[in-house]
Design a protein around this nucleic acid. Structure first.
Lengths: 206, 206, 206, 206
DNA sequence: GATGAATGAGGCTTCATTCAT
DNA sequence: TATGAATGAAGCCTCATTCAT
């Protein structure tokens, strides 16, 4: 019994190792220019061994993107979960998101590239998964916003649009950060993001 | 003389045809899954002929992305150029941008995929070009914003951040539009985008 | 016009060359142990060129087996066609069959191996084709035999069984010939084959 | 002592199990498309365990084909051994052969495929073994025929040819039976086979 | 200039066999 | 002795690019 558990644990460790190494290479070269041989070499396995963990290159790629996507959104939701007021929730949302990006730069390079969109991951295409995750996250933000509307914290604007807007502002800063890493951290921009989102940029706005 | 001009004109027409057809295929399949053979077939040329217009696949792709990028930004700038007030300029900026996206869906699918980032376009990598265009466009927006600050239309916030924020809000709507084309047009969202950007979402914001 | 014809002709020549060389190798090593690389090398083409003539290894193999099967049966039928009496027809049948085997030893090594049976030739499996050809040939023999029954040349035995028997006797000699080529030619055995088939081996038989 | 015997017995049982399962799979898929992994799974052993019984895939295949070949021929000879007259021996020969085929369809599918011919079984190639068994069986039949000639039961024809002919007739019916199993059993065809073989098909033959 | 057949490097994947546990 | 994860050689096939016509 113990033995089986131990084996399973080791299996998961190896699998995670592969995914980690693959992530780096995919981030640097993109899906097509990354070879199974390189992933194998980098992760210290034989080529054939990769196929004990994944059905193929697409599966390896899809698994990595997909699992990490889940973890990321879970992390963000968890960060938000502990907060009480809408304002606190917004701060947690943006802050944990930026935090994740800073700690997972390679992964974000992959997401930005959005190659996933073309792949034909066996059954449910990876594209669907990503978009659905994306939308479900937007809806999560939407809920917070609806709460804010109810509590008179927000104006009565279409919540979906507001969620999109917030997400977009964040994305823009993420993009700049990823493409041209600046001295300033991403996290330092949280107040600025929220400020614009909440109050807008126009002087004397109503 | 006349003959040479005529030839040159025909050459440019053919070249544009190839780029147009290539755009569609790249948009549908991505860079790597698109073959020179398919581009040739679709555009009605022989494979070998493509190489009289472009040095290779990357060059063809890069040229298409790059030239169209220039044209797009030019179009936006031109739309803005005719406007007087900052507010009008903002409207023109967002409006012409959304307009371009609606009329060039395929191209935007390509840009979103951002495969360009990986390519090693002989000398100046396409990645550099795109990012530089992107930044230069941000700076263009920045300038409008600076003008708005000077004229007391905008608050005194870091103009670069403001430009990013505006761009981000737009991107978010673009993304939704491209991924899940909704009945509502993109252009219809211009006021909403500007409203959030200008006044924020918080009630009673200062 | 002439040019197109010429091209087509050359194409067919090249194609036939490949099939010929492939036949030799398949005969010597079997389907699975034969590599596309070897076929390419032997036939003087690049690997990639093989794929301009055939969709893949199975297709190449299937085409070769199938086309040659047709030609063989056609040759035999033609040989029979010119004959008048049943006896002459039988002689022509056996004789031309043995003749073909002697002149196409490699091909018969392939047919005997019957690997074709496992392959999953895209649509109509090669197996079906071969069996159907086989049966249709048996039926062809059957017709001759029926004629012999009508003309009182043959006893009134089930014609299909008779056809099978004749085919079997021939196969047996073919097999011995192919496996352990003996000094005596196959053709020399035609009278012996017919003698046993017609009169049996029992003394004083009715 | 007892223990050793017991072990040996179990070893032989396991070995036979493997061979039985392997036979089914080889029959269905052919040598190359059958994997050691599948044989292991089906027979309930670990992959590595197979290598305690056989040196490798070819050896496993060769052993199965070879041992079964021996058993088959032994069975036929035994059936013949008890008979007195040549006619009875012939009947037993054909009958037991057909019987074996009916009861070992899978094995015959393998023999018909004749992949064995290509394999390079380390020392004595399997091909040699099969051909030698085949010939030795032909010679066995030959002996019966010689006896028939001596006893004036058969005409004075080359006994080898006669043996081949009989074998061929049988093979033909076997082939039809295996490829397109018909309602009628193989055994029911014994009289027909012998009739043609003994008396031929020609009316008023001498 | 235009063509498209020919090229062959290189990728993904399979699977017989080994060996540490 | 039994296991089955690890190995890596080798095969099929694709496709950007060239060049003879």
């Amino acid at each position: 019994m113990e033995k089986t558990k131990r084996k399973e644990k080791e299996y998961q460790l190896r699998r995670a190792d592969i995914l980690d190494e693959a992530e780096k290479i995919f981030a640097a070269k993109g899906f097509h220019s990354t070879t199974m041989a390189e992933i194998a070499r980098t992760s210290g396995f034989a080529i054939g061994s990769l196929y004990q963990f994944f059905n193929g290159k697409e599966h390896l790629y899809g698994t990595m993107v997909s699992e990490k996507l889940d973890r990321m959104y879970a992390e963000i939701r968890e960060a938000v979960a502990g907060r009480k007021t809408v304002m606190e929730k917004l701060e947690a949302l943006v802050s944990s998101h930026f935090n994740y990006v800073e700690n997972n730069l390679d992964y974000w390079k992959i997401l930005i590239r959005a190659e996933s969109i073309t792949l034909s991951d066996e059954d449910a295409s990876l594209k669907e998964k990503i978009i659905s995750c994306y939308l479900s996250h937007i809806h999560f933000v939407e809920k917070i916003i609806k709460e804010g509307i109810r509590t008179n914290f927000f104006k009565t604007i279409d919540p979906f649009s507001m969620a999109c807007a917030l997400h977009g502002i964040m994305s823009s800063f993420k993009f700049i950060y990823i493409m041209k890493p600046r001295p300033g951290s991403l996290k330092g921009r949280v107040p600025g993001v929220l400020d614009i989102f909440l109050k807008g940029v126009k002087k004397n706005a109503v």
